[in-house]
Nucleic acid binder design. Structure first.
Lengths: 188, 188
DNA sequence: CCACAAGGAAACCGAACGGTATACTTTTGA
DNA sequence: TCAAAAGTATACCGTTCGGTTTCCTTGTGG
């Protein structure tokens, strides 16, 4: 694989640290060290810590969505099946060693102001996931795809919190079982 | 009402600030100022910021549970009805001006280490809520009260996240509608 | 080949952090 | 009543923060 650019090194280091230890708790010096670059290089690529946080969240969004859709869109599966497989994708995620909840939920815990750029990005992320599942529902022929997507997303968020805050790694399968009720209700 | 002790003043000020702006982002000086006490008094009552955080979370737990149970346990309601009223209590909470999500979810976003005392306290809180709803389910005659409580709690967490991160204040009523499905399933 | 951008190491900046110490005033209970 | 306890105000401590600057080295493309 091609060696990553300095910018990528920085973003990936920041992502790990922000995710595991939080945004305010992570200092620039720590990121610089983990990225293996000089402070000057870091500030050549990002004007401030705030800008780096935003770039990191955008990268996270990109990585999450590509991984998520790849797991959901297994070959030879119907859209209806894929609606339920959303929870299998979650389950895979929860079992990972470095699972510390949803980075966007975590970020919006630290940046609660509605006008904060980080908070806005978190809301955008949730909207993108909603739109994706809504599309799946639409393709499956659901009558009110928006409602089903909102319901399934509520289950997703609930599962993430139980997996993280309660350290309950079975939450995804519980949510799947619950989700199936609403999928069947919407697609009799 | 009796005037609050210095200790209470400090804890309430800390609660507001930690809740709205986060734990790492809130400095001792800000808490001291809001509480209207001197720094010495603050450190007479709490050995460190960490100790104050823990005391604050414990107070929050106490306030949350007393308010929550009060809202749920309306007179002349059956345990079955109370199971659904959990979501009405949530709804009231979401409509409050100063709603910034669940303080314990927010805290565990900042303290992800399983051994961290704050994280442990968050997990304990979730366990207490689980036990309370489990008791309600048991009194209602549910066959597997533990399972129903876990399901309803998943809906609760999901609603909280949607209400906060997505700024969707209708989440509680959505969760209620979804919860009723499982309540009816458990109590035919 | 070499000019010029990019990177590295480290000193440095002012501000804010958590926490302590000092000196004085107020509250309060036996 | 009066000394101990608790409070205030403020200066202070070392550390860390986000961010800048300086000087030197290392690519790298025309």
């Amino acid at each position: 694989m091609a060696k990553p650019s300095k910018r990528e090194q920085i973003v990936y280091a920041a992502m790990d640290l922000f995710y595991q230890e939080g945004f305010h708790a992570t200092g620039i010096e720590k990121i610089r060290e983990k990225a293996g670059v000089s402070k000057k290089t870091l500030y050549n690529h990002f004007r401030s810590k705030d800008e780096l946080m935003l770039a990191t969240l955008r990268k996270r969004e990109e990585l999450f969505m590509s991984g998520f859709t790849r797991k959901v869109e297994q070959p030879d599966t119907s859209s209806r099946e894929r609606l339920a497989m959303v929870f299998d994708a979650l389950d895979e995620w929860f079992q990972e060693k470095g699972f510390y909840g949803c980075m966007f939920i975590n970020a919006s815990a630290e940046f609660s102001d509605l006008d904060d750029p980080c908070y806005k990005l978190c809301a955008e992320h949730k909207q993108l996931v909603h739109d994706y599942i809504k599309d799946l529902a639409e393709q499956a022929g659901v009558g009110d795809p928006d409602e089903l997507s909102t319901q399934l997303n509520l289950l997703i968020e609930g599962a993430i919190v139980q997996a993280h805050t309660c350290n309950d790694k079975t939450a995804a399968m519980r949510a799947k079982k619950m989700g199936k009720v609403f999928i069947e209700q919407a697609l009799p």
